[in-house]
Amino acid sequence: MSLKQGRFVERTVVYVGAVLVFLLVAFPLYGVVLTSLQREEDVRSTNVNFFPTYVTFEHFAEVLRPGHIVPIREAMTNSIVISALTAVVTVTLALPATYALTRLRLPGRRFIIAALIAVYLFPTLLFVLPIYIQAVQWGLTDTFQGLLIPYVAFSLPFTIWILRGFLESLPVEIEEAAQLDGCNQLQLFTQIVVPLMRPGLVAGLLMVFILAWVEFLTPLLFTSDLKILPVSLGLYRSTYDIKIGQLAAAAVLTALPVLALTTLFQRMITEVITAGAHR
């Protein structure tokens, strides 16, 4: 086989592979979008259509109507508030901790870092059980705080891990120079490190927001009140008895904000994830 033929074969394999991967990964998403845009009788037909001949937004209009059994509008508002709050609180807690664990002299530093990774080995339910009991005893179920505490706690180790990747990639010389210029420890942290960490903080906020948005187990156990229902649980509620088209529309609405964020910030998210792989 000549080099030219080899190139041709290689290129064919690449494009066939690319199309296959695209179909495999994207089809489930396409399927739910398609369902949300078709009339109910066509959705339920055994004559499954893979390509639409028309498009209808009736399911979206229905699901977004106030008073619909799936409170998707309220749930989305709740989720925006809870996810944003979780992101801000988590990053605020994680940032100073990351700095101390990465750059400062701290007894047991290695142990703490190892422990933060080790919690990941335990099933979440192992921690959730006592937290649930405590929440019941303190009357924290069905409250924003009751949701916020586990949300923040469960994303904290992960966030410290992300921020550490960023901090380690910053040259320590800048901090050393600032110290020589007479910065005290607090100034060094607030005026030098925090501004340098800004891209990392944005990435951290983004990742925690997404993870809080998709969280399901915590709201499942900690909320029953419709007033604070986050969107993932709201959607789940709708799986009881509802038109399939409407369920698909609700699913699309639930996924849309995080998928939009992921598409917009794909590069940043990929960098955060792969930075972890290098360590």
Binding site: P28, I244, V258, T262
Partner: peptide
């Protein structure tokens, strides 16, 4: 493709349940 390949990571698990439910549904 890089964007598309990342998307399933951000799909809420419940949505994942709904969309796989539609794939596996017996009749339709």
């Amino acid at each position: 493709l890089r964007v598309v390949v990342l998307l399933p990571w951000a799909v809420p698990p419940v949505v994942s349940g709904v969309l796989w439910g539609q794939i596996y549904a017996a009749e339709y």
